[in-house]
């Protein structure tokens, strides 16, 4: 009789372990998934902002999903500056046209893509935003130019409900 021959008992062991593993997985998953965003958090996923009082060259900050969203009404010079940047100078190349549907309005998450701090307005070497935590510099289109942040500041989903109101989310 060969030692390596598969016995009926081996089959039973394997089948038992397999069923056991599925059972443990099915029990553990609810314990893990309960930590994900719940229904009430997901329900607050959009917000409307009245931007009629924002004059050119000013930024307002609104809270969306617990995070700040910068809404900047850019001046003509700023738009020119943002458009003039060559793609090869950028760490994360994105055209300004793709980031601001309406070039006058830049709507983006005010969250540094490095470790999540809120960058300061009108600061840094590129006339845009500067993150005080670890020194990332962003330009007037919110694109990363210098520092540890890996990507440009994120553009949330938004649209103009009318000329004075932006709906984020």
């Amino acid at each position: 009789m060969s030692e390596n021959k598969i016995k009926r008992r081996d089959f039973l062991f394997t089948a038992t372990y397999a069923v056991g593993a599925v059972g443990v997985g099915a029990t553990v998953w609810p314990m893990i998934d309960q930590m994900n965003p719940d229904a009430s958090v997901k329900a607050l996923a959009s917000t409307e902002v009245d931007v009629s009082s924002v004059s050119p060259g000013k930024t307002i900050t609104v809270l969306w999903r617990g995070k700040p969203v910068f809404i900047r009404r850019r001046t003509q010079e700023e738009i020119q500056e943002a458009k003039a940047v060559k793609m090869e100078e950028l760490k994360h190349p994105e055209k300004d046209e793709d980031r601001a549907k309406n070039p006058e309005w830049l709507v983006m998450l005010g969250v540094c893509t490095h470790l999540g701090c809120v960058p300061l307005d009108q600061k840094g070497d590129y006339n845009g935003w500067f993150c005080p935590c670890h020194g990332s510099h962003y330009d007037i289109s919110g694109r990363i130019r210098k520092g540890p942040a890996p990507t440009n500041m994120e553009i949330p989903e938004y649209n103009f409900v009318n000329s004075n109101t932006i709906k984020i989310g």
Binding site: I32, M35, D38, V41, G66, H114, G116, C133
Partner: peptide
Amino acid sequence: TVITNLFSAIPLVGEGIVTWLWGGY
């Protein structure tokens, strides 16, 4: 915010892990 965001450095699953740690956005 800064410490939990350290996990976002993990490729692919990083953002999901951070959302899971926060229980929100």
